[in-house]
Amino acid sequence: MARENHPAAGRAGLIVNPRSGRGSGKGLALAERLKRAPGVMLGVLDRFEEIGAVLDGMARGGVTDLFISSGDGTIQEILTRIAEDRLFASPPRLGLLPHGTTNLSARDLGFRARSVEAQAQFIESLAASDLQQRHTIRCANPGDGRIRHGMFVGTGAVALATRYCQQAFNARGVRGQWAVAGTLLTALRKYLLSAPDAADESRFDRPHAITVEAGGRRLCEGPQLLQMSTTLDRLVLDARPFWGGKTAPIRTTVFPYPVPSVARWMLPAMYGGEGRRMPSGAVSFCAEALSVSSDTIFVIDGEFFPPPPGEPLRLETGPLFTFVRG
């Protein structure tokens, strides 16, 4: 983490997705507060498809610090556009405002001040900042053919649980850590109260054919519970399910099937140290790039896509972004 003053020539921009957070209104309140602020460019999205045009306008307007009021899906789309379309001469610094339904990236890298007034004052002044730098993960060949950049990619149980969380909790207005906790409790209840059933598609704890390769080595293959890769330091519920030391930008963990004892391994898996001991078949490593073959959908920052037909998904280290923490 560094602390610095932004150059005097800096210019702030704010993108608001008012539908994030089930209409919490925080993004619109911030935009209203800043609408007369000199030098601040505003982009309120009437439609998600407007992101490209809004970013193009901000790039031409000289925005150097881009603040995003949204959930993870909008952030992922903005990261992808900046990385792939190269609209900006150099990537703007990003301020992630946790105004969305899910805020995995913002919990780890987001702006610390929670009040709209504090956020507005910072955006107006571009004062001295605490910064974090982090690479994206570039999904090079998704099954729908659209390259994506994000901070978290997974398949197997983690993708199914994310979809369930959105349908069962987010759709009813339950957000953030409460929705994640509810999803985890649902999975644990079924695991503890009923025998494993690989054919029961309502369960998260069923086998998925997953093969992971990196650095010319096959690290796992066959039935697995889940695979997840990230450049974040902490995930939902502040979990750090990675071990063995961070030696490259992308951290990946695979948990095996059959599922090891949850009572024995859940807390060490989520919160153990880098030297933790884990059950046989559990794999954790770092890499610049890896490939993942799966028969299940993938999730990237809360958005879903199918696996590429007939080949593994290639995950690559994306550009290095700087995040403004306030």
Rank of each mutant, 00 (worst) to 15 (best):
E4N: 09
H6I: 09
A8E: 12
A8V: 13
G13W: 00
I15T: 00
V16I: 13
V16H: 00
R19G: 13
L28M: 13
L28Q: 10
R36V: 09
A37N: 09
P38V: 09
G43T: 02
V44I: 13
L45G: 01
D46I: 08
R47I: 09
E50A: 15
G52Q: 08
G57F: 01
G57C: 09
G61T: 05
L66P: 02
G71W: 00
Q76E: 13
E77I: 04
L79T: 02
T80Q: 01
T80H: 02
R81F: 05
A83P: 06
R86K: 15
R86Y: 13
G95E: 02
G95N: 04
L97Q: 03
P98M: 06
L104P: 00
L104M: 15
L104V: 13
A106F: 05
R107C: 11
A113H: 13
Q121K: 12
T136L: 09
T136Q: 04
C139H: 01
P142R: 04
H149K: 05
F152G: 01
G154Y: 01
V158K: 00
V158S: 12
L160G: 08
A161D: 05
A161Q: 05
Y164W: 14
C165L: 13
A179S: 14
A187Q: 08
L188R: 02
K190W: 12
Y191N: 06
L193H: 11
A195D: 14
A195E: 15
A199K: 12
D200C: 11
P207F: 02
I210V: 12
A214W: 00
G215P: 03
R217D: 10
G222L: 08
G222F: 06
P223N: 07
Q224L: 09
S229T: 09
V236S: 11
P241E: 02
W243Q: 03
T247P: 05
R251A: 13
V262S: 06
Y271P: 04
G272Y: 04
G273N: 11
E274N: 10
E274T: 11
P279H: 07
G281A: 06
G281R: 01
A289N: 07
S291K: 07
V292H: 01
S293T: 15
D301Y: 04
P306S: 09
P307D: 13
E311H: 15
P312C: 08
L315C: 07
T317I: 05
